[in-house]
Design a protein around this nucleic acid. Structure first.
Lengths: 372, 372
DNA sequence: GAGATGCATGAAAACGTATCCACATCGGGT
DNA sequence: ACCCGATGTGGATACGTTTTCATGCATCTC
């Protein structure tokens, strides 16, 4: 009761100022923050109603002005001035409930610890920030179940836009689309969901370039060390390798570092005859380097190595790693653009170029590895 | 109109099933999703009211049951059953508006690309997930202005819990606390805001250990390569070094990789006489390694290097980097715990241990570096 | 047996916003 | 002079939930 009365008094005060001369208002009310200690604890949030009363207009008008609707220049200016003076910030809560959507954009990725996804997330954040949209982050751990859980959470939150590096298949994503979420996939697709727009690096060209480079150096027994959801790369790998393909040299790890290392070490141990490895991600590349070192294989003399994704430490490694650079940040940014600009018709998917960065981890096939 | 009528019909249907035999309901309505193609586009969200009507109780009762309030076992079971059948999910939008808070937890950090912050974020996500809370991520770029902007966004969203690696000073964070947000700082403090609980790595001990280790190896001219917000580390560094301190050897970079490299290269070039560097973060360590390589300084023969924060590539580097490991993930997790369990009284801050991991980037001071 | 006590329950209010609709005002055209 | 359309405006409503409050019923106590 007391509070409401107090608030009213303030608003009258402001109206007075506005009438007598708006120019002075700011100087008087700039120090609003100084009232901190006194009123902060139990101060009600400034609502659209307060602004309306202080400006002497209806709430509808305020809402229109602030949402870009039509209004006479005079009232528009008055409303804007008063809103600024009161330091009014529209409550996303009210708006969200009214329009049945929370506005934010959900971002679901396997592992925020992986610098690739980190850079991708950074791109999303950059675009979202320029659009003033909050980003809700979730880590799926490449587990469809956790992914489904997170999707449920997003739905419950009323999020209506989501960018995902999908782990699950079409089934997992059915509820999302059914609920009318605008979805954009990044970096990879979900099996059986080619109706969802996506932003992808040109894996096809990347793999082909890498394979051509390695075969050009004389390599014949080339392994692919893959991760989750790399079916497309695998098919291109097989295709590019043609007759040289050896299914025993194509292995897949789960998302974790441990799994990657285990698989890499197993591969190198099992097949001492292979001369080159294409690692399908920086975690896998890291695992390959560690495993090679553990087995006393020297890169690139004993083993040539190409890694997907250019990370800062690729240059620090010795030898510096030859990589296929992917525009992780761009992927995120473009995905955010797509999901924000989602118009009536479904936007076209985007394919971003990859680039082979030749450093020092590949060499012509020399003397065959000495058996251990 | 048509829709409402349709919805009512469905509810009647369900009530009938429930009366006649609940066991059959699931089998009949399991296939609910099959109606997708027909009704999905214009199907109203299932609300608490629907559940109430279908269960033949009031909305208040449903709310109580679902929020863990008291209710008779009979009604509780009936409500739960109906809710499950209707696949009812409470709308966070409505709840948020009602209780004037959005429930989620905001996470503000300088740069999600930095693996340290990535791991920290991962810890936060882990804890938040187990609590069922969404996380809203924002990247400040170590810029107080952007930070203030993001804080404003969080306030607008009604977020009432925030974890931050603060960039700004107490002034920046005044609005946050004024608005009644429960705030927890992680990894570092904001100047003049020691009233905010924090989760920190034991920098004090870390720096001291590192300095002792280096001086123990005979080093006398030791540089500190710092980043933003490392005032405390600097003071400890000076203190630990005692009479050996040389202000010219204490330099600070901004957050970016470029800045870090520039400062590192400048330092090494300007002072060829220094024999050891303590880098205050993995970006700075990376910069130091690159700069040293560029100047043809061999590590550790010409230059000993210790880096704050243990990252996977520290082992891949040659030589492997001696580091001060920080429990980044734990920091995030604990911070999330604190901010979630925020009771009436302010929780105590937490200090987590650091650990010196000796690898190969430090050596006893040998022959002084040859001048270039 | 009457009053007191406890519990389950539902109607209603509130949260802050956007939008629908009705009304008023004004200018220009017949 | 009258009407009509365009435009600006404000009251009222709805969004889905939680919480308060009053009511009814059953049980307990003296």
């Amino acid at each position: 009761m007391h509070l409401t009365g107090n608030g009213h008094a303030c608003q009258e005060q402001i109206r007075f100022f506005l009438v007598s001369g708006a120019a002075d208002v700011s100087s008087h009310w700039n120090g609003y923050g100084k009232y901190d200690g006194i009123v902060s604890m139990n101060m009600r949030r400034t609502t659209i109603k307060d602004v309306a009363e202080a400006a002497g207009v209806g709430v509808a008008t305020v809402s229109r002005v602030l949402s870009g609707g039509s209004a006479s220049p005079a009232t528009r200016e008055r409303v804007l001035t008063v809103a600024a003076q009161l330091d009014y910030r529209p409550s996303a809560l009210g708006r969200n409930l009214r329009q049945q959507r929370s506005g934010g954009i959900g971002l679901l990725l396997p592992d925020i610890t992986d610098t690739f996804y980190g850079r991708l997330a950074d791109g999303v954040l950059a675009c979202a920030r320029s659009a003033g949209e909050p980003v809700i982050l979730g880590a799926t751990g490449d587990d469809p179940e956790r992914e489904a859980e997170l999707i449920g959470m997003l739905l419950e939150q009323g999020v209506d836009r989501v960018i995902a590096i999908p782990s699950g298949d079409g089934e997992t994503w059915a509820p999302t689309l059914r609920a009318g979420l605008t979805t954009v996939f990044a970096h990879r697709l979900a099996a059986g969901r080619d109706d969802v727009p996506a932003v992808l690096a040109d894996d096809r060209a990347g793999v082909r370039t890498a394979v051509d480079y390695l075969t050009g150096l004389g390599h014949r027994r080339i392994a692919y060390l893959g991760g989750p959801g790399q079916e497309q790369r695998l098919s291109v790998f097989r295709q590019a390798l043609g007759a040289l393909v050896d299914e025993d040299l194509i292995v897949s790890a789960r998302g974790s570092r441990d799994s990657a290392y285990a698989v890499a070490a197993g591969l190198l141990q099992r097949r001492p005859d292979l001369t080159a490895v294409l690692a399908g991600g920086n975690l896998l590349g890291e695992a390959a380097v560690l495993a090679a070192r553990e087995l006393d294989l020297r890169v690139p003399r004993d083993l040539s190595l190409i890694m997907f994704d250019d990370v800062p430490w690729a240059e620090l490694c010795s030898p510096p790693l030859t990589v296929i650079a992917q525009p992780a940040q761009d992927i995120g940014y473009r995905a955010a653009e797509l999901v924000l600009r989602a118009g009536p018709r479904r936007p076209r998917s985007v394919l971003l170029p990859t680039e082979l960065m030749v450093r020092g981890s590949c060499a012509p096939r020399g003397i065959s590895r000495s058996p251990r």
